[in-house]
Every structure is written in C-alpha cells, then in structure tokens.
C-alpha cells in the first residue's frame, strides 16, 4: 500500500539558525511513526511544514498521493493536526470549540453534531461539553485538543508532544486512545522527547537532533546500532564531573554524560565493567551511591549517536 505521507529534503532556516535540515521520512497507512528528539531539535518545525502551517525553504511533501504545495488546500483534509500548545478558545465551551474546528474541515449539520459528540466521548468529556474550556484541568484541555484534530476522521494524525504537562492518568488515556486509533487504521506521526512514549506507541522511530534525522528504524533496528552496549546509571554525592571524566577514560565506555545527581553512560558489556567503574569512582573522589544497568533502549541510542542525553 502506498504511503500516507512522504516527505523529502525538508529545510527551514530562522535567521542564522537552521532549524530543520534535510529531513525526510515515510509513513504507511496504519503505521505509527515516532519523531524523537530533545527540545529544540526541530520536531515542531518539521510538523508545521508537513501540515502546511509554515512555508518551507526546501523539500517536498506528498499526502495520500497528492503534493502539498499550496495549490490545493483540500490535500490537508487527510491530516489531523494536534499542536504542541493547546490551541482552543478558552472562553468557549468544549462543544463550541469542537464544532468550530469541525466546520473548518467542512463538517456541518447532523454529521457535525455526531462528530462533536464522538470527539467529546473520546476526550472523556461528554458530561463537560457545555462547560467553558478555561475551567478545564490541563489534562482535560489536552484531551480536547486531541479530539479537535480528529473530528474529520483524518487518515494521518499528527501529534506534537501531546502529553506535555499532563498527569500520568491523562497521559495513559491519551496513549491508549492513540493506540486504539492506530489499530483502527489511522496512520500516526507522534513527536516527543519522552523515549518511553515513543517506545510504547510507535512501529518506527526517527531520531532527530539539531534539525537532522540522524537515525531511523524500528526500535530493534535502532538498538542494534548501539550493539551490545548497556546503559549504566551511576549516582554519587561526590563530584559528578570528575566521575564522568574518570568513566570516559575506561575502555568500553562509549559515552558518559553528567545528569542530575550522577552520570549516565553507554558501555560495551556494562555488567563486566562494574568493578572497574567502582574503583574509577573511588579514584575520582566520587564514591557511588547506586548503580543501575539497563538493556539498551532509545535513550542509549540517542546518547550513543549524539553524546547527549535526551533530557536533563
């Protein structure tokens, strides 16, 4: 089956800053694609160009077989866009907000009413639909924000960090409903700087940093790039900088990064390295208070590829 979304060579510059630099990927129907990268990596800029919100400097976007080039705004009907910030009118009710966005997508009459009701249900807000949005909690707003992007039943749902600032319960609800949509055949483009969400939800992941797509594949494929490396977390009350420096000098450590309260590193056969790590810490005057060795995950892939932590 042909791709729902194909983009190639996307580029956008803000003054001196090359925010997006040659990003391209494909999403198949029913596939969930995760765009994972730290804050400022260029995720929102990429998405804005895909959704036709931002004029791009270069690159092509094809949505459901039709080019997105401004000549035919109807192309955008295939996309449901959920912005990173809550884009709702606070003084209008949940129902009114949904009805407004539904109208923008050409819904009207009974069909609009039906879709608004479905949207409220998906957001878990059926009995709050007549209340003003400025009285909603952060999580409620987030869920309504997502529902507003789904009213017209798009083939591709684009979510830009949809769980920022929500409580764990809402976050779970959001992830579950996105997973359910994907099961129903909707393609999903999901950006996040939370590795766990992307790992849980996405079939394929693109890792983006400083405007470039630096790796892409299934979780398995990406983790294999790191090889047999493990992710090791060390905590210390001592000098974390000195600890990181000491770790870096050890053979098999591919990267060591200071994080709050300790050091995070990727090491080949991390378990066999533990005695060496302990004595290195002692020599550095930063005795360890805990050691945690984990199987490699996307976090370690990112660390391996960029030498940076995804967060902190």
């Amino acid at each position: 089956m042909s791709a729902v979304l194909t983009c190639t060579g996307l580029a956008k510059r803000y003054g001196e800053r090359q925010a997006v630099d040659g990003v391209g990927f494909e999403i198949a129907p029913g596939e969930a694609y995760g765009l994972l990268g730290p804050n400022g990596a260029g995720k929102t800029t990429t998405i804005s160009m895909l959704c036709g919100l931002l004029d791009r400097d270069a690159g092509d976007v094809v949505v459901a077989g039709r080019p997105l080039d401004g000549s035919d705004p109807g192309v955008k009907r295939a996309i449901g866009y959920v912005p990173q910030d809550i884009a709702l009118y606070p003084e209008l009710t949940g129902q009114e907000n949904l009805a407004f966005f539904g109208r923008l997508y050409g819904l009207s009459g009974g069909k609009l009413r039906q879709r608004v009701a479905a949207g409220l249900e998906l957001a878990g807000l059926t009995d709050r639909g007549a209340d003003r949005v400025d009285g909603f909690s952060g999580g409620m707003k987030r869920r309504l924000n997502i529902a507003a992007g789904l009213l017209h039943e798009p083939r591709l749902l684009v979510l830009d960090e949809p769980t920022v600032g929500v409580d764990p319960q809402s976050r779970n609800a959001i992830l579950d409903s996105v997973a359910a949509l994907r099961e129903g055949g909707t393609a999903v483009l999901y950006t996040s700087h939370y590795m766990e969400e992307v790992e849980r939800l996405c079939d394929r992941v693109g890792i983006i940093d400083e405007g470039r797509l630096i790796a892409e594949g299934t979780r398995r494929e990406l983790v294999d790039q790191v090889g047999q490396a493990d992710r090791v977390e060390l905590t210390t009350d001592g000098d974390a900088e000195a600890l990181a420096a000491a770790c870096r000098s050890l053979e098999g450590v591919s990267d060591a990064q200071v994080v709050s309260g300790g050091v995070r590193l990727v090491a080949l056969r991390g378990r066999s390295l533990l005695p060496a790590l302990v004595s290195a810490a002692d020599r550095a005057g930063a005795p360890l208070s805990s050691i945690d060795v984990a199987e490699p995950d996307l976090e370690s892939v990112f660390l391996h590829l960029t030498g940076k932590a995804l967060r902190d």
């Binding site: 919100l53 955008k76 884009a87 997508y105």
Partner: peptide, 17 residues
C-alpha cells in the same frame, strides 16, 4: 490572543486557504 493560543495556525492546518 488567537495567534498566541495557536488557534490561528491551527486554522491554517484546515483544508482552506
């Protein structure tokens, strides 16, 4: 405010000009 809220940009995501 609409611009700040991002609602204006969201409008541009709709299939219209």
């Amino acid at each position: 405010e609409s611009r700040r809220l991002g609602v204006s940009r969201r409008m541009l995501a709709a299939p219209t000009t």
